[in-house]
Structures are given as C-alpha cells and as structure tokens.
Amino acid sequence: MNRVWSLTGHKPRELQIPPLPAGMEYLPGLFWECKRTSEPLTWQELQAWSRLMDRKLDPEEYRALMKMDAIQCRVAHEA
C-alpha cells in the first residue's frame, strides 16, 4: 500500500481511475516508451516512433496513446 494511502486509508481521488480494458494493459508501457518530453505528442512524432521501433499499431491504439497524452499533459499543467 502506498504510504499516503496507509496514512489516510483512502486512495487519492486523482488515482481513482477505471481499469484498462482487458487486453490493453500494455498501452501505458508503450505510452511512456514514446513520450520523451513534457510537450504534447504530435501525430508525426507518434508515427516516427512507430516506424523507428517497428511497431505496427491499430488506429484505436494510436488514438488511445494520444488520449493518454492529452490527459497526462492536462494533469501535469494542473500541478
């Protein structure tokens, strides 16, 4: 259990997120593999990363990575 959680007994609201759909648990790893700066990802960067890493992703996977990036950028700028 996280130290903060052990003090309060409750998971922070910011960490109460729905689980990833079954079979898509690998997406956060891919996200952090291609996310290298604090700047928002562009489609061109994602395409270049995919080509260089020889990763063939479905359009839905690309959309999910871009959505994860939008959320990460929003949260980072709220702090």
Results as ranks from 00 to 15, higher is better:
residue 1 M to F: 10
residue 2 N to Y: 07
residue 3 R to H: 14
residue 3 R to Q: 14
residue 4 V to W: 12
residue 4 V to A: 11
residue 5 W to L: 12
residue 5 W to C: 10
residue 6 S to P: 07
residue 9 G to E: 02
residue 9 G to L: 03
residue 9 G to H: 05
residue 10 H to T: 05
residue 11 K to S: 09
residue 13 R to E: 05
residue 14 E to G: 04
residue 16 Q to Y: 00
residue 16 Q to T: 04
residue 17 I to A: 13
residue 18 P to H: 09
residue 19 P to L: 08
residue 20 L to P: 07
residue 21 P to I: 01
residue 22 A to C: 10
residue 23 G to I: 01
residue 23 G to D: 01
residue 24 M to R: 13
residue 24 M to L: 10
residue 27 L to E: 02
residue 27 L to W: 03
residue 28 P to W: 02
residue 29 G to M: 04
residue 29 G to R: 05
residue 32 W to E: 09
residue 34 C to Q: 09
residue 35 K to S: 00
residue 37 T to G: 05
residue 39 E to V: 05
residue 40 P to K: 10
residue 40 P to R: 09
residue 41 L to C: 02
residue 41 L to R: 00
residue 42 T to M: 06
residue 42 T to V: 08
residue 43 W to P: 06
residue 44 Q to Y: 07
residue 44 Q to I: 06
residue 45 E to M: 07
residue 45 E to P: 02
residue 45 E to F: 01
residue 49 W to M: 05
residue 50 S to K: 07
residue 52 L to F: 08
residue 56 K to C: 14
residue 56 K to P: 03
residue 58 D to M: 05
residue 59 P to V: 01
residue 61 E to A: 13
residue 61 E to M: 05
residue 62 Y to T: 02
residue 62 Y to N: 01
residue 62 Y to P: 00
residue 63 R to I: 08
residue 64 A to T: 05
residue 65 L to E: 01
residue 66 M to S: 06
residue 67 K to A: 15
residue 68 M to R: 03
residue 68 M to A: 06
residue 69 D to N: 09
residue 70 A to T: 07
residue 72 Q to N: 15
residue 72 Q to S: 15
residue 74 R to I: 06
residue 75 V to M: 11
residue 76 A to S: 14
residue 76 A to W: 15
residue 76 A to H: 15
residue 76 A to K: 14
residue 77 H to W: 15
residue 77 H to C: 11
residue 77 H to K: 15
residue 77 H to T: 12
residue 78 E to L: 14
residue 79 A to F: 12
